[in-house]
Design a protein around this nucleic acid. Structure first.
Lengths: 347, 347
DNA sequence: CTGAAAGCGCTTACAG
DNA sequence: CTGAAAGCGCTTACAG
């Protein structure tokens, strides 16, 4: 590989000038700049990124924390692939690469004496590699670790976890708004006894969806008996279990808002099993708009999250911090109601 | 951050000795080693990776080329998330991070004068960042670029693309074997007129699945008329189109082997549309075992690929090259027949 | 086993 | 606008 020194010698300038041509071209006279650029092109010069990072303490890399431990089902969420793509694409467009950090169970972590979801390990990796900052994707129960990392002062943006700190922000969907829209949609379809299957209480989107549900029910003047709120874990099995309990109620709901499509699919199976017709006996609305939602029978009404948009928003947030030193406010992306047969209006 | 120098001073040894303690501990006397280790721990020392990479020309990073250009549908394949997880997990376990390289349409690429899927760009990135090597995932038509990169002499392992070169190898499923098993399964179920819907001819797994199909048909003494081989593109729509053509044939097949589950789902829709019952009027077998396969009605018989296993095999192959300097032979992972209702034996 | 020294390839005040 | 120089923090022959 050609180095800055060879170019400098060939052009009869100092290495400092060559360096400036690549980093702050406007501080170099036009003649010298053009010579350097031409020679660099001819020699197919590529800056050595390790050397740049060492000297400048900046790396052109953004770190990604996405714990894929096999004991945790969270990472399998189909949502994440599109989010990752949105993130990577937006970073790429600005010339940044995405470093997927070794996480739990890894030798790298053990070497630094760290355990699962250890914020200290994140800080170390960020420093060691001179990362511009970190994007944190929650695959289940990383919330507390993320919150702790956000205090470190290193730039970070969390997805679906509320964090605060000088250089910390987060990106999420408008979960409250989406849940309200779900309820309004069901009310318009003629429902009054509407139940909900929630996500894990400690999960922020889950909590927001429940809050939105309650708000909208209150706005509609509808009551929410305690047994009409059943806690799930976002996954299919829990939706199925929850639905069975709702069906068994003395006065079962005529509609159920599920905080995820996976749970709604589970609820659908439970309803079918119990001999109930959807939507005639019980209407269902999910959340996420995963591919499966459109493919089940009947197709599932849901609130679409802008998955790629969330990834892109995370990218923009972290780049804003890296470039401007400014911490952008949390980004809350709108959801979109996708009406399908599972909540068709009652005749 | 503490540096090697501070530790050296505190311990009364040279920086060379400190460096050795971390890199080749056995070349240092036990007393000195223990002192250095203790002090390092007390000071929470972390080596600066940029400096290490610059001095040693090695980085502890493996690059990943996975083109996610939005014009290309390939990256959406549900297969890829599990593959990525398998890859990352195995690398993590050995202390390596995974660098997702900025690809097409990115400023980074334009800056180096490169275009979509440019092997030269890959070489540059590998050198600039001192990457141990590259893992190449094909999202559609990167085959030629991967083949070219493999000639560069830099360590690389391609997924589902046959490459050759001093330091190049690949990982793939046993596509020939899987296709043969599919055919044998259908033959056992009583079928004689078996058609196939293939993937893109230039795609190596697609070609292998077709070859396996033809071999097994020949072994069973069955004829394959030209119009019983229809070309698709792995995606759902093409499966649907292809199935329509098969149904319209004067003597339509009683069973169809589809080279991907997505196409099999398309074929299922086409069959249903035409009023045909699956499996009674026409049996279907797919390939991949994506989640959807088990969820359609009837559930789809398919050949499962070991997605995470492929990712892990890719990780091991690249690490073998990085550590031992040896180039492992191509890894061909077995597939597994998952019999479901779509190919139930005829009564 | 250990240290002094050179070197990895770049950036960045500083002085002019 | 430009150059000389120091420095980023580590690794690695080399000599002992």
């Amino acid at each position: 590989m050609t180095t800055i020194r060879e170019i400098a010698e060939l052009c009869g300038v100092s290495v400092a000038t060559v360096s400036r041509v690549f980093n702050r071209p406007l501080t170099v006279s036009r003649e010298k700049r053009e010579v350097v650029e031409r020679v660099a092109r001819e020699l197919d010069y590529r800056p050595n990124e390790s050397a740049r990072a060492l000297a400048s303490r900046r790396s052109g890399l953004i770190g990604l924390v996405w714990d894929t431990d096999h004991r945790r089902p969270g990472w399998r969420h189909p949502y994440l692939q599109e989010l990752l793509i949105g993130l990577k694409t937006a970073l790429s467009a600005h010339g940044y690469h995405l470093l997927m950090l070794a996480t739990s169970g890894s030798a790298a972590l053990r070497a630094v004496g760290a355990s699962l979801a250890d914020p200290v390990a994140y800080v170390n990796m960020t420093r060691r590699h001179h990362l511009g900052g970190l994007v944190l994707i929650d695959s289940g129960k990383d919330g507390p670790a993320f919150t702790a990392f956000a205090q470190s002062g290193l730039p970070c943006v969390a997805v679906d976890v509320v964090v605060s700190g000088d250089r910390a922000t987060y990106v999420t969907s408008d979960n409250v708004g989406g849940a309200r829209e779900a309820v309004r949609h069901l009310v318009e379809a003629g429902h009054r006894r509407i139940a909900t299957i929630t996500g894990p209480p400690a999960n922020s989107p889950a909590a927001d969806r429940l809050a939105g549900f309650r708000t909208a029910m209150a706005e509609a003047g509808l009551d929410v008996p305690d047994d009409h709120v059943v806690t799930g874990d976002f996954h299919r099995g829990s939706g199925q279990d929850a639905m069975r309990r709702l069906i068994a109620l003395p006065s079962p709901p005529t509609a159920v808002f599920c905080a995820s499509d996976e749970m709604a699919v589970g609820a659908l199976l439970a309803a079918r099993h119990a001999g109930l017709r959807v939507p005639d006996d019980v209407a269902l609305v999910g959340f996420d708009d995963i591919e499966l939602a459109a493919l089940v029978d009947p197709p599932l009404t849901t609130l679409a999250q802008d998955k790629a948009g969330i990834g892109a928003a995370a990218a923009h947030a972290i780049l804003t911090m890296v470039h401007n030193g400014q911490t952008p406010p949390p980004a809350v992306l709108p959801t979109r109601l996708i009406p399908r047969a599972s909540s068709r209006a009652r005749r």
